[in-house]
């Protein structure tokens, strides 16, 4: 009898914690939605989504989200292009190529990398990487999308490396033995056998890395120049969705159009990360089949 009650209690606790997660997601969404819709009483949705000017304090104000969306897109895409290949190849090196002692050192270094606070990276970008890129590429300013991309790539690397490495390390030894037994080289085994076998884990790693990149605020606010105009290339100053909210929330009057517009930006951000996760999930499911 007592055992049955204990079972019930534990079961209920587990179920509740599961529900709390769902509840949080729904509440965050509703919370954003509640304030975001208030904007559209004053400001048309079409102009918000398709407007090309973000001028929140001019008269009349203009809340076109396109410059911010493109800014986010540039920085994120740049970071992904840099960090995915580097991350996966590093994971391959650590899991399959590096000799024992080096492997241990590399793994702990990757963990240290993950623990660097983003504001420190932003600082490095501000005082060193930005000016360096400016001189190297002859840019007008070092505070641009590229600097942000590089730093974000750096931030996503530990996630991608450590999860991909786990996935590769858990490929059954029997696969490798079979491949070597058929006369495959180390590279062929790694590329054609281990990588496909670890693919779902690697995709998950990449998606988590991308999630980190899109949501990051501090670094991009510090190094991308904070100028909400449509950038024509990644080497121009720009501003992301996240940085917009962070830098303008302090000055927006509570209850003003500007204030609601920032909530609407948050909603857009929320929906885009949600969609990315959905796509990632679909990929994972297909990879598992």
């Amino acid at each position: 009898m007592r055992r049955a009650i204990t079972e019930r209690i534990i079961e209920t606790c587990i179920r509740l914690s599961g529900l709390v997660v769902i509840l949080f997601v729904v509440l965050v969404f509703l919370f954003l939605l509640k304030d975001a819709v208030l904007l559209f009483g004053h400001y048309p949705l079409g102009q918000f989504l398709l407007g090309t000017k973000w001028l929140p304090i001019s008269e009349p104000p203009s809340f076109g989200i396109i410059p911010l969306l493109i800014g986010s897109l540039y920085v994120t895409a740049g970071a992904i292009v840099l960090c995915v290949p580097v991350g996966v190849i590093s994971a391959m090196f650590i899991a399959e190529v590096a000799p024992g002692p080096l492997k241990g050192i590399l793994k702990s270094l990757v963990e240290i990398l993950a623990s660097i606070p983003s504001v420190v990276l932003g600082f490095i970008g501000l005082v060193w990487l930005g000016p360096f890129l400016k001189d190297l590429l002859g840019l007008r300013t070092g505070q641009c999308g590229l600097t942000g991309s590089l730093l974000l790539a750096f931030m996503a690397l530990p996630t991608i490396i450590s999860i991909s490495e786990d996935a590769l390390a858990s490929v059954p030894k029997a696969f490798k033995e079979a491949a070597y037994g058929l006369g495959a080289t180390r590279w062929q085994t790694l590329w054609r056998i281990c990588l496909p076998a670890a693919s779902s884990g690697i995709i998950a790693a990449v998606m988590l890395g991308i999630g980190r990149v899109i949501g990051e605020t501090m670094v991009v606010m510090m190094v991308t120049g904070n100028s909400p105009v449509i950038p024509r290339s990644i080497t121009q100053a720009l501003r992301t969705l996240t940085a917009t909210i962070a830098s303008e929330m302090g000055e927006a009057v509570s209850g003003s159009e500007h204030y609601y517009a920032l909530f609407a930006v948050g909603l857009v951000l929320f929906i885009s990360t949600f969609l990315i996760n959905l796509v990632a999930d679909a990929f994972l499911r297909r990879a598992r089949q």
Binding site: A174, E177, A178, G181, G183, I193
Partner: peptide, 17 residues
């Protein structure tokens, strides 16, 4: 050598393909 001398293992180790 391994092409000429093939090997079959204790547990069937087909690839995840």
């Amino acid at each position: 050598l391994r092409k000429k001398v093939g090997m079959v293992f204790q547990r069937p180790n087909v690839f995840d393909l």
